[in-house]
Design a protein around this nucleic acid. Structure first.
Lengths: 206, 206
DNA sequence: GTGAGACTACCTACTGGTAGGTAGTGGCCA
DNA sequence: TGGCCACTACCTACCAGTAGGTAGTCTCAC
């Protein structure tokens, strides 16, 4: 979830800095909750300069989602390659969300999902792709965990994946309304415990 | 979830009609996603007339939430008094959300939770109260179900309640992004099944 | 000397909100 | 029974501020 290295630790090019600010605003106030003027004020440049880099807000939003998806994809790849069993990987996946939470932000796509009907088409499609990607990755993970014995899903892997994503997104939403990030893990921990074999229950046919 | 009876089936007073339209817009586009002009256009009256009934948008929002909370509270009371075991009641609770989904809407408070940081204080507090109320009701229900044997929660009742609300709100968000309301029940059914005793698993200590 | 990236200076459309006015209704009392 | 008052519900016409966006100019490193 990092920006590119850029030779040394340069202050990053303007386009990236614009995206950084826009991302923060979008994750706290929503895509309709900020304006070019807001970004310009933070960066100390003029609105017109923003239009030089991102001609329209729709284009800015598209770029925002593209970068976000790439970063998220890389984070997933990192989890994949770092080893550990499926349960460990699931914990690391959840940490991805937690890292967003503690910065008082919402998952970008969770936020945009709420605003869905007001978004330009390309952004709608990008939001959907993001969730599909997550669902695919999680489904594979749950399947892997079932085979390896590190997870004990109580339903088909894809259903479990969907429940997880829904609960994660919902928990972020709720935790922020309570202005209490710890609520997030309070929701997530029971779910993880429930997926872990040999903690409380054991599977059995009726 | 009904308006007052009002003698016969009058077309409802203007204030209620304003709230009806505002509610629909807030649930589909968000509170920041509509303007007084939008409402006025739908109702065929002037913006200024809206201000006559609701001086500020903040006041309109407050009234919206108040009415919504009352209606929801009544719906919960109806579930309580209609009998059935805790599992049945939980199913009816979920149906409340489903009824919103099929109209292509989001739970009003779920939507407002996303916009939380941009809302006037009184609205923020009302959103939080709504979730607290739901959590309280659900916790009691899960407890009742555990005692009566119609539910088999895998965690403390309050945790289960929180997971349920989170997943429900998240599932609505996601289902709308997929433009497929049926996704909602695809998430909810496994959760309900998991809470139902004697279907797949049986509790056991390690 | 050219082109990327910033600027000044604007535009149009729309935001929430206000000022001031009018038509109609119901009560009340002389 | 007619006239006045207070009230509700709406109106037209406007306000300042902000939204996203554009045209044209300056600057300076390559």
């Amino acid at each position: 979830m990092n920006d590119r290295p850029a030779a040394a630790s340069q202050p990053a090019d303007t386009a990236s800095r614009i995206l950084d600010v826009a991302e923060g605003l979008a994750q706290t106030r929503g895509f309709n909750g900020f304006s070019y003027a807001d970004i310009a004020a933070v960066l100390g440049i003029r609105k017109a300069s923003l239009h030089h880099h991102f001609p329209t807000k729709a284009e800015l939003g598209r770029a925002l989602l593209e970068r976000y998806a790439v970063a998220f994809g890389e984070a997933l790849k990192a989890i994949d390659s770092d080893g550990g069993d499926a349960y460990d990987k699931l914990v690391r996946y959840v940490q991805l969300y937690d890292q967003v939470m503690v910065r008082d932000r919402l998952c970008l796509c969770g936020m945009l999902a709420a605003e869905y009907s007001t978004l330009p088409r390309p952004m709608q499609e990008a939001v959907r792709r993001f969730f599909e990607e997550n669902e695919r990755w999680l489904t594979k993970l749950v399947e892997e965990g079932r085979r390896g014995g590190s997870l004990r899903p109580g339903a088909p892997a894809r259903d479990v994946a969907r429940v997880l994503i829904s609960a994660l997104e919902g928990a972020m939403l709720l935790a922020r309304s309570y202005e209490d990030p710890s609520r997030f893990s309070a929701v997530v921990q029971p779910m993880l415990a429930d997926l872990r074999p040999g903690t409380l229950r054991k599977k059995r046919r009726k």
